[in-house]
Structure formats: structure tokens, C-alpha cells
């Protein structure tokens, strides 16, 4: 049993694949978070463009991952760039939607008093709304974590490297141990990251929205 795992790990270069996988994961997630939060802040300040934004993102969200890859291939070629782009396109919506909801739904009581004691509109946005929205934002990021993990695995199809590669190889060669080990490993990573995100979300909720 252990022998099989060790030999599959070695022949499929799982250490290398894991590093590739995680580096794509962190790059994609960071880009998504930055774009989504900035976009949410912009949309929040100009609500008129909000609907258009969310409609576009909703449409993207309905395109199957594989189809999205095919759209992106002529533009970005093969490999990591289209994979990361797809991750970002999918992840922006959950983070942005949660950020926007978090910003908009801060109880009026706090906004009213903040205004009354003399905070400007921007100070209210950054000192009151944004921190109080953090638990919801992290909830959105948690959804994005799961999406990103899955899409990067699919990236194996378009030569992006990562843990999708041993899975593809296993399927083509009908190498059942490789399929099982690689998929269990991806699954474990997914569960671990989701758990980490969950812990952070809970911590933030207790810190920033204790009531």
C-alpha cells in the first residue's frame, strides 16, 4: 500500500505538481480578491453601474468551465495564463457579491451615528462599512477557494501543470492507483483549504460582528 503510494508519487512527480498547483492557486486567489474588492467598492460608490457588472459576472458564472477554457485559448494560449484567468473570472462574482452585500447591509444605526459624529462618506466606507463587511467577504473568498481548486485541476487539460496532470495521465493510461491517489490528494488539499478559510471566516465574524 505505502509502496504503491510512494511509487505513484515519484512517477507522477506529485511534489512538483503540488507546488505548481498551489502557486497557481495563490496567484489566482490573490488576483480575484484584489479585483473583486476594488470592483465592489467602485460599484458601491456608483450604484448605477452595479447592475451591469453583476449581470456580466452572472453570465460568465453560467458558462461551463471547459467552454470558458475554449473561449480563452485563442486569447491567452495554453498553460497557466488561461487557467488563472478562468479561476479569476469565476471567483470574482462570489467575492464581489458578498463584499457588496456586506458593504450595503451594515446596520443603519452605525452609519447614522458615524455621519452624525462627523465622518465623511469615504471614511464611513473604509472605517465602518469595509471592516464590518469582512466576515461576509471572507465567506465569499471561501466559495472562491473551492472554485479555484476545482478549476486549476481542470487546467491539467490545457497543459497548465498542477495536479490535473497526473489525473489526466491516469485516465489515459487507465492507471487506477494514480487516479485514486491524485484525486484523494487534490480532495484533501481542497478540504484543508476550505477548513482554513472557514476558521478565518469564523474568527472575523466573532471579531467584527459579534452581535
Amino acid at each position: 500500500m505505502l509502496d504503491t503510494i510512494i511509487s505513484v508519487w515519484a512517477t507522477q512527480q506529485l511534489t512538483l505538481r503540488t507546488i505548481q498547483h498551489l502557486s497557481m492557486f495563490f496567484i489566482a486567489l490573490s488576483i480575484s480578491i484584489i479585483i473583486a474588492i476594488i470592483a465592489a467598492l467602485l460599484v458601491y460608490s456608483n450604484p448605477r453601474v452595479g447592475n451591469i457588472w453583476f449581470n456580466i459576472l452572472n453570465v460568465i458564472e453560467t458558462i461551463p468551465e471547459l467552454a470558458l477554457f475554449i473561449f480563452l485559448l485563442p486569447i491567452l494560449g495554453l498553460g497557466e495564463p488561461p487557467t488563472i484567468a478562468a479561476c479569476v473570472l469565476y471567483s470574482i462574482l462570489p467575492i464581489m457579491r458578498n463584499t457588496y452585500t456586506g458593504l450595503a447591509n451594515v446596520s443603519n444605526e452605525y452609519i447614522e451615528i458615524a455621519k452624525a459624529i462627523g465622518l465623511t462618506k469615504n471614511e464611513i466606507l473604509f472605517k465602518i462599512r469595509l471592516p464590518m463587511a469582512l466576515p461576509l467577504i471572507s465567506g465569499g473568498i471561501r466559495v472562491a477557494v473551492v472554485y479555484t481548486m476545482g478549476i486549476i485541476t481542470l487546467g491539467g487539460l490545457i497543459a497548465a501543470g498542477g495536479l490535473g496532470v497526473p489525473l489526466q495521465a491516469g485516465i489515459h493510461q487507465y492507471n487506477i492507483p494514480a487516479i485514486i491517489i491524485a484525486s484523494l490528494w487534490v480532495g484533501t488539499l481542497g478540504v484543508v483549504f476550505d477548513a482554513v478559510a472557514w476558521i478565518i471566516e469564523n474568527k472575523l465574524a466573532r471579531r467584527y460582528n459579534p452581535w
Binding site: E109, E112, M132, R207
Partner: peptide, 15 residues
């Protein structure tokens, strides 16, 4: 900023 304001709901910022 030159006037203090106190309300019934208090409105201390929870974070």
C-alpha cells in the same frame, strides 16, 4: 465634529 452626538441605540462600532 464640533458637536457631540449621543443616541438611544448608542451605536458604538462593534469592530
Amino acid at each position: 465634529r464640533r458637536m457631540g452626538y449621543v443616541i438611544q441605540q448608542i451605536g458604538l462600532f462593534p469592530h
